[in-house]
Design a binder for these strands. Sequence first.
DNA 1: TTGTAAGCGTTATCAA
DNA 2: TTGATAACGCTTACAA
Lengths: 308, 308
Amino acid sequence: MSEETRKRIAMAIKELGYQPNIIARSLKQKTTMTIGVVVFNIMHMLTTQVLHAIEEECQERGFHVIVSNSDDDPEKEKKYIEMLRAKQVDGLIIFPTGKNADIYQKLLEERFPLVFVDRMVPEVKADAVLLDNQKAAELAVEYFAERGYEHIGIVTPPLVSHIVPRMERIEGFRQALVKKGLPVVDDYFITTEIPRIQKELTRLYESGRLPEALFAINDLTLMEVLYFIKGNHINTPDELAIISIDDVPFAHVYTPTLTTISQPTFAMGKKAAERLFLQIAKKSEHQPQVFRFSPTFIERGSVKEKTS
Amino acid sequence: MSEETRKRIAMAIKELGYQPNIIARSLKQKTTMTIGVVVFNIMHMLTTQVLHAIEEECQERGFHVIVSNSDDDPEKEKKYIEMLRAKQVDGLIIFPTGKNADIYQKLLEERFPLVFVDRMVPEVKADAVLLDNQKAAELAVEYFAERGYEHIGIVTPPLVSHIVPRMERIEGFRQALVKKGLPVVDDYFITTEIPRIQKELTRLYESGRLPEALFAINDLTLMEVLYFIKGNHINTPDELAIISIDDVPFAHVYTPTLTTISQPTFAMGKKAAERLFLQIAKKSEHQPQVFRFSPTFIERGSVKEKTS
DNA sequence: TTGTAAGCGTTATCAA
DNA sequence: TTGATAACGCTTACAA
C-alpha cells in the first residue's frame, strides 16, 4: 500500500466518521477478544482482588472481560456459562460452584479454554489456580502452637465435600493439630452458616468453653468473629487470639492489628489470565495443571506470646 | 408453528448440538444486550458496590456488562469508550474522569445511551446519578456542632475543579461551618494526595494544631485517618472525633465503632441501570435528569458528646 | 406453515 | 496494488 493511499484512507475515515464494527469482525474471525468470568461470590474479598488482576491482565492484551455472579447457584452458573458461550467469548475463567462437573467436562472435551480459580473440581482435569490451603491452615496452627496455645478453634461455613478450599483448610487444620500434639476438640470446630456463627460462638462463650485461639478461614467468617468479640467485650489477644485467611483492608488499623494469612491474589489472577491466554493461543496440546500458591503469613497483633 | 414441528426442532437442536451464535444475531439486530461501564477507580468502595447493583439489574434483564477501569486517566477513558462502542454495546454507564467533555458531548449528540455516576460533568446534559454531597457535608458538621465541637477539620484529596463531589463536599463543609457560626480555619483543610495525608496530619498533630474532629470525605481518606490515629496513639473519640462518607465493612466492629454517612449505593446503581435501559428503549425524546440521592447518617461511636 | 434469499459489516480469496 | 466477491451465522421479508 502506497503512502498516498494510506493518507487517502485516513482522510476518508475521518470525513465519513467511520467507526469499525467489532461485532462484524468477530463474526468473521471467530474471536471476540472477550473472556467471560463466572464467580460464585462477588462479595468475597478474594473475588474482588483476583478479578481486578484478571481485568488488568486482559486490558493489557486488548481483551475485555464480562463478569457474571453465579451466587453459588449451579443453575445460574450453568445459564451464565451457556450465555457467555453463545456470546462467543474466547475463554472462561470460573470460580466454580463445583456442582456442574458435567458442564465443565464438556467444555474440556471441546477444548474450550477454561481455568478454575479458588475452587477446583478434582474429577475435571482443567487448569486450576488455588491457594495451598493445607499450608495456610498449618501456618496458623503452628504459629499458635509455638506461642503456647493449646485450645484452638476453627470458624468456617458448613463442610461441603465439593467446596475444596474449605475442606482442605479444615483438614489441614486438623492434621496440624495432631502433628503438634494438640487436642482435637469437636466443640472447637465451629462449622455453621455465616449468619449463625455469632450465636454459636456466643453459646460456647457463655458455657465457658470458648477456645483460647480462633482460626477464621476467610474474610467473611472473620467479620463474624470480630463482631462477636466486640459484642461480648472479649479482649483480643488476651482472652482470644485470632488468625484469619484473606486480606482485609483494615487489618493494620484495627485494634489490635490483625494477624492474617494472605493469599497472593494479584499473582493468582495474573496466572489465571496467563493460562487462559495460553490455551487461547494454541488450543491443542495444552497440558492442564494445578497451580498451588503459597500463602503469606503476616504477623500483626491479634496473637500474643502466652507466658503462662 | 405446530406442536410437532416444535418438537422436531427441539430434537434437531439436541442431536446436532446446535449452539446459537449471539454475535451473528447482534450483527443483524444491531443490539448486543451488553452495556459498558467505565469507572475511574475500581478500588473505591462506592465503585464496587454500585457496580454490583448495576450487574444485578442487568442480569435480570438478560444484559451483560463489560467493566473497564480508566484509573482516572482521561486518555484511557477515551480509549475504553471507543473500544466499547466499537464492540457495539447498547449503552454506557460512566464514572467519569470529567476531562473528556467533548467525547461525552458527542455521545449525547448521537443520542447514545449514557448515564453518569458519582461524578457529573456540568456542561454535558446527560443523566447523572449522584449523592447529595452538600447535604452529606452538612450532616457531618451539624452533628459535630450539636455535640459541642468547634474545631472541625476535613480530609480530602486535592481540590480539582472537575471532580464535582469533592468540590461539593468541601464547599458544603465550609458553608455548614459558616451557617453554624463555627470558625473556618485554613489549617483544618487537609487537602492533599492520599499518600501524603499521614504526614500532613502528623505535622498538624505535632505542632499541636490538630482539630477536635475530622470529616473524611471518603473511604480512602478514612483509612489514612485511622492509620494516623493508630500510629500516634490518638484516642477516638476523646481526642479526635471522626465522621466519614462511604460504607466501610468494618464500621461496626471497629473500636470505637465508626460514625459514617452512607451512600445508598444499591439504589444508585439500580437507578443508573434503569435510566440507561429507559434510554435504550426509546432513544429519542429522553429528558436527561440529575438524580441526587440523600445520604444516610449512621450514628455509631466515633463522636462523643462534648461536655466541656 | 414452510422455504428461499437478501443483508448486517467485516475479512479473506482470487483476479485483474 | 487494487477491486470484486464470497462467507461468517443469524434475522427478516417475501414467496411458495
